[in-house]
Design a protein around this nucleic acid. Sequence first.
RNA 1: GGAACAUUAGCUCAGUUGGUUUAGAGCAUUACUUUGACAGAGUAGGGGUCACUGGUUCGAGCCCAGUAUGUUCCACCA
Length: 886
Amino acid sequence: MEISKNFDFKSAELKWYQHWMDNRHFESHPDGREPYTVVIPPPNVTGILHMGHCLNNTIQDILVRRARMMGKNACWVPGTDHASIATEAKVVQMLRERGIQKASLSRDEFLGYAWEWKEKYGGIILQQLKKLGCSLDWNRTSFTMDPDYYQSVIRVFNDLYQKGYIYRGKRMINWDPRAKTALSDEEVIFKEVQGKLYFLQYQLVDKEGNPIPLEQGGITIATVRPETILGDAAIAVNPTDERFSHLIGTYALVPLINRKIPIIGDDYVATDFGSGALKITPAHDMNDNQIGIKHGLAVYDILNEDGTLSADAILHVGKDRFEARKDIVEELKHAGHVVKIEEYVHQVGFSERTDVVVEPRLSLQWWVDMKKISGPALSAVNDGEVNFHPAKFKNLYRHWMENIKDWCISRQLWWGHRIPAWYDQEGRFVVAMDEAEAIAKFSSEHGINNPILKQDEDCLDTWFSSWLWPFEVFKGISNPGNKDVSYYYPTQTLVTAPEIIFFWVARMIMAGYEYMGQKPFGDVYFTGIVRDNLGRKMSKQLGNSPDLLNMIDEIGADAVRFGILIASPAGNDLLWDKASNEQGRNFINKLWNALKLIQLWKERAKDGLTPEEVTLSNDWPHRWFEARLRQVCTEVEQLMAQFKLSEALKTLYTLIWDDYCSWYLEWIKPGFEKPMDQQHLNRAIANFEILMERLHPFMPFVTEEIYNLLRDNQPTNLCVRQMDPGFVFNAADENILQEAALLKEAITAIRDARVKAQIKNKDAVSLFCTVKEKSLWTAIKELLCKQINARELTFTEEPVSDTIQLVLGADRFYIKTDQVLDTAAQRKELETELAYYQGFLNVVEKKLSNEKFVANAKQEVVDLERKKQADALAKIGLLQESLNNL
RNA sequence: GGAACAUUAGCUCAGUUGGUUUAGAGCAUUACUUUGACAGAGUAGGGGUCACUGGUUCGAGCCCAGUAUGUUCCACCA
């Protein structure tokens, strides 16, 4: 059968993915087998595939495919996340492009557009995962706003509220003035900003408001946000600060508006920063708020939700906060309050989603009391119920969980799960599953018939739905105890990015224990962050993120999978470079060429060759390779168990490239134009099949294609071939592996000697040797001669003159050739080697002559050194002898 | 400011409880080879005071202390 020159990945990818789908190989149903369940970290419904997804999903696919081939019932659940803020922002932008303002739409109209948009563009990313070869069970595709899922989120909210774990409270939150929504702490990114520190003097007044002359002590405060003085409620000083302590109990006037505020003492104030006196603005600073509560201060909320100044500010009402800052500085200068202005670098919080400066703001929001549900989740990770890979994330997790803060779950958005709380006109509220239930509840609680209630306008934080993902994809809440959730939950492995350990992983563990009574997954594998070859994070702004789909199109999915994985050390970020794709492509080419050779042999194969026709009369190379194969399979198994996927792939790469192609196929290769023995061929094919089997989870398309061609396109599926669990390394293999090491060493050394003596490959030589293990060398001498183009191998006890002499371990070889030998070069060669061993011997003997070493070291260590010494001495002896023979 | 982790060849990394030939791999690089699966190949070589300074030990890439650099997380003193 004609084989194409190269692997045609384009047609193979289409063909095999379709074939696997047609044969329903990715579908899973509960049965008697052990399940292996993985839920995909749901990408944003609006997302498109990038390098991070590529890494993450390649890893999941490897785990799932491998489990499928190891007799497990593998189930990988796909789906998408509604991603409230990100999606709403995209819809708003789409509307703006069409000339529609969100503010002009009703909630229902807006949601109509949003759903339309979601149906059209949502889920593109899932189609893209197919290109990568991901073996997801597409029948199970979930979306966090599917009707059942939506209901479950509402149910969980109701349940937590009833348990008293959810409350409504006015608290300082991070406010995004562009998105006009609250942000959780995790959604705020602090950046270093060059700003100015303004030193402002406040007039001191007595209790009645009469000015105290400045000579007796005005008070200077320092601030980076001068506009917030309009919200000042006090000035605080440290009670131990002698400069100011006498002022505690007196008053100051806020510049420009002349509000009388008290001067209070609080040891929170640092004496060595700024002026030593701190203005307190309870509505606009987290710490000031705490101090305000402590001292019972008034609250002046000077900002509107869009970041403009409110009526409470008195001045500059309606002006943007940054405009107001500029203007107020001018006014303060004018009025003589500015003492000095210093350049100042400080950290400012920015919104992760909109990148505007976040405003700490007092606001009425819904909260989850996390301490109530975090306990089991903390001990689960501490006690190894849930294992993190790499383990270093365990510390991070513990630290966060032990200092966990309440979770602000309301978001001022329309796209998402609407908060199931209903209010009457007086602001009294009930939490219920729906409006009817709300009305009933309200009536009975407040004794009002047919109350007029209005549902909360806000939505829940996206993560408040995705924390239910591992069980709600199996309808664990909407249909409790169903067959699927009982079978598949808890899932086995979660593969995700370390950035969302708190957003998502921790919360899933909490929800798992709270609602299923057990952990959501046994292992969490944290992938690294994909960076470019300069170490920069890949991002749209930098434009350093390659177009993944283009790449797959250009070089093939298998090469891309290989490329990203080989560059991905366990537990580290990976610096990805296009060159690693090329390594993948070269590897595929190597596989393809091995296939071509096998196919060529198939055409020339004959049964029952005469002994003269069979190149190898014994099966030594097969026995060796099969031992090596078992050894590597065991290694790979161990590496996979530790989630060292990259190393597992490297190990297979070496096995295939070096052991199978470079050694094994060469060893069984018949002479030029000689027929191939069918028995040999069969074993080579069987071994090739096992290689493809073990490689398949990593590179599914090319392996499936080769496997089918090896079987001459009989209907087979590598995809669901079952790995033999008994195919593991055993001690009996050790012997032949060592023999092979000797043989390889001899071949390499003799080839090297030939090259150095400039003996052409086609010129045959004669080989003589003095060896210890004569029986071994007798068995493999034919093999050796073929590899180095020697006419024959003759055993001898005496030195052979006019030859190239080699010392290999305790054995010695003589290469006889018709060519004139360059004795000087040979001498140099031997002398270099001699010098090395003498140096080595020195080190060993130095050790052995150290009495303390001999006295203190373990006996086996000393024995080993003695053996090294003996070996080195023997080697030196042989080398010197060779030199003398020259 | 606090903490965690890292620092081994040009690059990316192994190096398992301190002794396993005077430190390994892949990629890159250099020289040579080359017509029978594969130049997208083969063979060989070069390249490292294992960040630095001390310490423990008969013995340190590995353990301890400190220093430097980097990454990440936490906090955010106005």
